[in-house]
Write a protein that binds this DNA or RNA. Structure first.
Length: 189
DNA sequence: TGGGCGATTCGCT
DNA sequence: GCGAATCGCCCAC
């Protein structure tokens, strides 16, 4: 089994960490799968929550790397990020999609859906499938309930603009696993 | 203290 | 493709 990713893995440029997460395995209480889509948010990026400074919501982003930043989206969904770079730099990677491999029955029950393709194909969906919520905000990714393991081999990565934002819309900081059927949206060829 | 808005999803057309 | 659901965050008043 590939080694756990240590916190020091995240203590680097978010633009380096983000593509290296593609192919890694993320589990929460044993449920999850292979990371197939992420987005990078740098603290100098107008689209980042941390851009305008620290607030109660985004405080974890300003802490050390390797911790979970979880926030509520559109009043409905949860979204899971991993804090990157040195403490205070306030950069993070948004986990956008997984290929489900472990605990499919649990995920289907939580999502009330039979289709494996739709279980984790979006940031809100995967948090529902993995039962991630505000309770996980500020927890380290290298300890239970999280389990995050390095990829076995370097996969082919596709790059494109990020989804659903209104600022810095052209920055190519969305990364995906080439050819994956489990993306939130296809990458433009 | 109140109102506009969002790193989304789903169902309907 | 479009719009509703839904509510915490955040800043202007």
């Amino acid at each position: 089994m590939p080694p756990r990713l240590r916190r020091s893995f995240f203590d680097r440029s978010v633009l380096k960490v983000a593509p290296e997460l593609i192919g890694a395995t993320l589990l929460v209480d044993g449920v999850g799968g292979v990371v197939v889509e992420v987005e990078a948010y740098h603290h100098t990026d107008p689209a980042a929550h941390s851009y305008t400074g620290m607030t109660e919501r985004n405080a974890v982003m300003f802490g050390p790397a390797g911790y979970a930043y979880v926030y509520r989206s559109y009043g409905i969904h949860w979204c899971l990020n991993v804090v990157c770079e040195a403490a205070g730099s306030a950069s993070a990677v948004l986990i956008r999609a997984l290929e489900p491999t472990e605990g499919l029955a649990k995920m289907r029950r939580r999502r009330e859906l039979p289709d494996a393709r739709a279980l984790c194909s979006g940031p809100g969906k995967l948090c529902q499938a993995l039962a991630v919520s505000i309770k996980h905000n500020g927890l380290p990714l290298d300890r239970p309930p999280f389990e995050l393991r390095a990829r076995a081999a370097v996969p082919e990565i596709v790059v494109g603009p990020r989804i659903g934002i209104t600022k810095a819309v052209d920055a190519p900081w969305r990364y995906g696993l080439a050819g994956s059927k489990f993306l939130s949206k296809p990458f433009k060829a």
